[in-house]
Design a binder for these strands. Sequence first.
DNA 1: GCATATAGTGTCATAAAGGATACCGTGATG
DNA 2: CATCACGGTATCCTTTATGACACTATATGC
Lengths: 124, 124
Amino acid sequence: MPRIRHTNFDCAPGCPVEGTLNLIGGKWKGMILFHLMSGTLRFNEIRRHLNSVTQRMLTNQLRELEADGFITRKVYAQVPPKVEYSLTEHGRSLEPIILALKVWGDTHLRSEAAKAATVRSRAA
Amino acid sequence: MPRIRHTNFDCAPGCPVEGTLNLIGGKWKGMILFHLMSGTLRFNEIRRHLNSVTQRMLTNQLRELEADGFITRKVYAQVPPKVEYSLTEHGRSLEPIILALKVWGDTHLRSEAAKAATVRSRAA
DNA sequence: GCATATAGTGTCATAAAGGATACCGTGATG
DNA sequence: CATCACGGTATCCTTTATGACACTATATGC
């Protein structure tokens, strides 16, 4: 989802939906937030949770989440470097959404085969 | 958000989040679903609710939502054509999510300026 | 000396999302 | 006859998100 650039939110009343989706719609953001809900994580810990992110993507997504005020970065002046990421209050306020997404996914995305079939038919 | 092509969902347990986001992450899908939650709508009704969708985009998004089983298309063999869109049961199951998004947006996206200021002060 | 781990950055490439524009067929309306 | 409304299609194009790959600096271990 390309980042939506509604300068003004004139498409009321749906826009809260849109705007929110916009903030958490990055390819990895949902998962990053989800994993951080369990506690503070270091860069490479997150990276290992997400099986195939590139460093650059992860950095990007983390930066955006940080810019949006959802997470904080704590840098330890060490060598080797150590950076910890954790949710802010603002980030925690997204928990209900992430949870709702997870619950829905758990309920409706079960049977990968069925889902895959759907996805593939769309791709075709 | 380019459509994610996780052939296998090996990044458990976050993937339900990812997969769900993937289904409703289209630029207009959230809003379409939101509006349809209020009841059946015709093509141009939806179009008017979304202030600036092009026909092609709306058609695309509706088709994808239909392919994913969230909405149904009911075509009336009339001239001029009449097509009605409404949520399926599957589509209705997304209501909690859409609502959560809307609630969050209403709470946290109010007065963009204020939010931006907050974010920035925190970032500073 | 060389590899490893850490948390990145920079450059380049590509696929996909989103958009602009024009067109279709029909029936009613002017 | 020209035009509009309806619900689309077909083509082409631009912007973005995502990805691959190489590179950095330093301390530790072999």
